[in-house]
Each structure stands twice: as C-alpha cells, then as structure tokens.
Write a protein that binds this DNA or RNA. Sequence first.
DNA 1: TTGTATGCGTTATCAC
DNA 2: GTGATAACGCATACAA
Lengths: 330, 330
Amino acid sequence: MITIQDVAKAAGVSVATVSRVLNNHPSVSEKTREKVQRTIDQLNYQPNLLGRNLRRSETKMILVLLQNIANPFYSKIVKGMEDVGYKNGYHIMICNTDSDPIKENAYLKLLKNRLVDGVVFMAPVISDEELTEISKNYCVVQCCEYKEFADVSSVSIDNEAAAYKATQHLISQGHRRIGLINGNSGIISESQREKGYKRALQEAGIEIDSQLIMYDSYGYRGGQRAAKYFLSIDKRPTAIFAVSDIIAIGAIKEIKEKGLSVPKDMAVVGFDDTGIASMYDPPLTTVAQPRYDLGRVTMEIMLERIRNNEAESKRVFLEHSLIIRESTVG
Amino acid sequence: MITIQDVAKAAGVSVATVSRVLNNHPSVSEKTREKVQRTIDQLNYQPNLLGRNLRRSETKMILVLLQNIANPFYSKIVKGMEDVGYKNGYHIMICNTDSDPIKENAYLKLLKNRLVDGVVFMAPVISDEELTEISKNYCVVQCCEYKEFADVSSVSIDNEAAAYKATQHLISQGHRRIGLINGNSGIISESQREKGYKRALQEAGIEIDSQLIMYDSYGYRGGQRAAKYFLSIDKRPTAIFAVSDIIAIGAIKEIKEKGLSVPKDMAVVGFDDTGIASMYDPPLTTVAQPRYDLGRVTMEIMLERIRNNEAESKRVFLEHSLIIRESTVG
DNA sequence: TTGTATGCGTTATCAC
DNA sequence: GTGATAACGCATACAA
C-alpha cells in the first residue's frame, strides 16, 4: 500500500508538504504543488482515511436509525439526507432497529465508538431522558417521529393539522360516521393524528364514538382486520381515515372483497403518499409529507450542529398537503 | 474523552493489559481481568475504534452499491446482508448510485480509502474489465445483477429459467400471443429473461413476433405505455409478461382503464414478488426471488473472501419460484 | 514556503 | 501473565 511517506520520498519533499497539497493548504508554492500532484497521480496514491479520521477525530459519516428500510415511506427521506450529505462530503449509514432497543443500543455504539459523527433517529425507542443525555455529548437530530420531552432537534410535519385536514375532507364529502385506523406502536404521530381526527369531528359537531377508533399494526393485514371489524358493526362507518397508505390499502382490499365499492360505500383516506397510493385501484386520497425535504432539512440541521456544537435544539415543521384522489370522491 | 491510557492508569495496569481485556485475550489472569473490567465500567470507557481501525487496517464495514434504495425490491435483500453482517460484527453502508458512473466512482473511493472492507455491487455500471481489476485488490461481490465477463463472484437467480417458467405458465393457460415488457437499462437480467421468454415460445411452437416485445424504463409509467401500445396493435396479445411487478401493475392499470378485465381479457405476470404484488387488485402472478437469501449468501461470500483473500470467484444461483395469483388465472 | 517532530488511540511484538 | 514500546497513516504546531 502506498502511503504519504512514499509520495514524499518520490517527490523529494516532506510528508507535511504532501499533506498540505492533499488538503489544499494555501501555503504551498505552485511549483511544489504541481510536482507533488504529479507524483500522487503517477503513484496512483489514495490517502488512507483511517489515519486522517484518527488524527482529526471525525469520520464524515452519519448514522440513520430507522425501524426498517423496507418501509417505502423512508426511501425519499433517506435520499434527501444523502444528497445533502454528499454535497458536504458526508456519507450516511442506514441501520434497521426493528424497534428493538437492544439493536438500537448496539448501533448507538457506532456513535460512542466515534465511528460516526452524528445520528439521526427516525423512530427512537430509547427514552426521552436518555435521548437528551446522548444529545449532550453527541450530535443528534430526530426526523418525522420524535420524543416530545427530549431536548433534541426534530424535523417533521404537523401531524395533528394533517389528520385534521384529512378528516375534514371526509366530513366535507358528507360523511358523519368516520372510522379511524391508528397504529399501535406508541410513536408520537399516532396520538397527534388521533387528536386532529377528533378535533375535526368535534368542530363539525360530530360525537366521537370510541367504537370507530381501531388500533392495529402498520401493514396490510392490520388494515384488513380493521376494515373487517368496521364492516361488521351495527352502525358501520361510511368513511375511514387510516394513518398509513398500506393500512388504507388493506382496508380497501377487504371492502372490495365484501363486494362493496370504494368510495361509494366506503371512502378511504391514507397517509404518506407512498408510491402505491397513486398506483392503486382506486387511487388513494392521502396526506403527502414532503419526504425529500424532511430528509434534506434534517441533514442540514445535523451539519449545522456538527459545525457548531452549541447550537440550540429546535423543532421544525414542514408543510404537508392533502392529495385528493378517487378513493374519497366519486 | 476517556482513552485506554486513562483506564490503564486508573486500574494500575499497562495499556497492553487493558487492550487484552478489551479483546478477550486469554492470557490475562482472572483477577486482573475483573479489576480492569470494573475500571472500564466505572469510567464508562468506550474504546475509540478509529484507533483500532487504523492499527488493524480494517473497518468491519461493507459498502453496498445499488441503483436506488427506493426500489422495494432491495429492502429484503439488504436485510439479509445486514443480518449476516451484524452477526459477524460487520456493518453495511448503502449508497445509491442512480446508475451514475460518477457517483459510483465517488463511492468506490470509500473502498480505496480503506473506509470499507469490501463492496457489494447490485447493479454495476462500471465495465467488466474495471470490475475485475478492482476485485484483484479489494473484496467485491455482485448481487442479483452481474457483469457476465467480470471475474468477480456473484449471487443471483437463474433469470433465463425464471422467465421461461413464467412464459410457460401463460402458454399453459392457453395463450399464444404473449407480449413481453422488458427493461431498457442494459443489465444482464434483461437479456436473460428475454432469452427465457423466447425459449418457452419456441418450444411451444409459437413464432416470435418482435411486435410483441417492448422495452421501456422500469416503472409504472413504462408499464402503462407498453400496455397502451399492446392494446392498440392489430393482433393484440392476450397475455403480458413484464420483467418487474411495477411495470406489470402499470400495465394492469392501463388495461383496466380501457374497460378490459385482468385476467379475462389480458393476463399479466410480473417479476420479483414485491409487497405490492399480493396487495394489488387483482393480486399479481409473479416470479419470487429469494430476496433475503440473496442478501444473506452475498454477505457470506463477502466475509469468506475477506477472511481468505485467495478465494476463487464463483457464480451462485439460488432457487426462484413462480407464484400464481389471480392476474393470470380466473 | 518547507521540514521536523509529535500525537491521535489502539494493537501487537517482544521482552521479562 | 504482564509491561514497555513501536508501529498504523495522517495532520499540524512549531521551527527554520
């Protein structure tokens, strides 16, 4: 392996000078710079960044912790992070926690062992206190989901307002009995979206019926189960608001299988505007999150924090929008 | 920051001994081991792996280069890699090349700069020769897609056989005019699947009609465009074999919009058995790749190669299966 | 403008 | 079984 020593020797300069050339240090004469650069090219020298990392005590690497990359919701967000990172010489490392505290903890070692310069939590399972504590010593940003009582920066949409808008849309279509299919994993968006749903009903003078609120796992099956239940009860709802597109699609599938039609017999709203929403039959009305920007802004805040460790934590909320498609309007 | 020096001092031993404890070296007396471990715990010492990495000249990190993680096809594969890596103390780093040679090249710097111990190519854009060259100096494995003439290990399914089986299934349903929607990005699976499609037709005594072979980008729109074309020609096909689920779904959407029914008027087969295949209406007949295992075996071969740099390159083919759903059978 | 020398935190070789 | 010490490859303070 060719090291900076070899280059120095071959070019007839000191390693310090080679290092300066590598790092574009201004105090190198044009002549030596050229000479060194030529030698670097000739030897096809590739600096060993392990040495640099140790010396500088940084890796230009950001850890992104998410539940599971298989979730199509994440891909564009990650893309946003990656693009910003790439432009600034940072790389990102995605790790699936499977919502397992043991795995999450194992990955946090990467931070404590200095292998990454910062960590983005997309669905922290760690406690608010621990998170705050970690943030004191390391660079941490939360994205989409966040711990309400942790003093750690976060980037997300206003989930309450988004759910409010989605529910209001159903009300505006004449629906009075509206079912909610919520997740059951205890993340903050769940309670926020439920709040928004309830506020919309209340403002429209519709009584909240706990029979119409279901909790299930995020996924196709969860949607099917919930829909099956809604179709089975006495005063069945005429519309459903599901907190994810996949849940919504599971619900639609179940409704269609019962020989009913969406939206005529049952309108359905999803959440996230993942690819499948526009492709499904019928295309799904859903809340679009600015996914790329969520990732972009998260990474920007991360880099800011890395550059200025004293930066105050902040909560950033980006704009969402309701995309109306044929699953709610005839 | 607490270093191994601090621990040594506090425990009244040398750094060598602390290092031995950290690495579970056998030649440490139980007494000292305990003493050192206690000090480590007390000080909450976290070894700085940058030092270790430099010293050992390894990072226990594997780079995975893929076109775009947004493609749902990848997620389970990556999971398989991650699980095997995790068990062996390795982490993986996923980077999107967007099929851009410049980006791919930039990421390969991670390899040359020693920041990763190996690289998995999921869709190499680099030439066969360059790939072979890199593989001489670094640990490289290809997954799913591979360069035919590169002397580099690969793990994939037998795409020719899979396409043959899919086409045969359509023939067995009585179809004689079968359209193929192929990708147009020049990856090896495309030509292999086209071969399999043609072989099935030939063996059934069906003439190959170049009018029935379309090339378009992987994606919903590509499927729509191709289906629109197939529906417009004189002797329209009665079945379509698409080389990806998303293409197939785009095609189905187009067919349904024309008021036709799947599979009655047009049967459709997809490829990959991504999540959407079973969720779509109608559920999609498709070729399932053993995605988790593809990732798992790829990583196993990678670790093998890392441990024994002299290992010969090999081509591994895993079993696929045709999953028959309602998009082809009434 | 350039070179010398030191240290980043760790592991591993060699003595004892 | 343990300690002293020399690397690993690089960046940088200081000297020249």
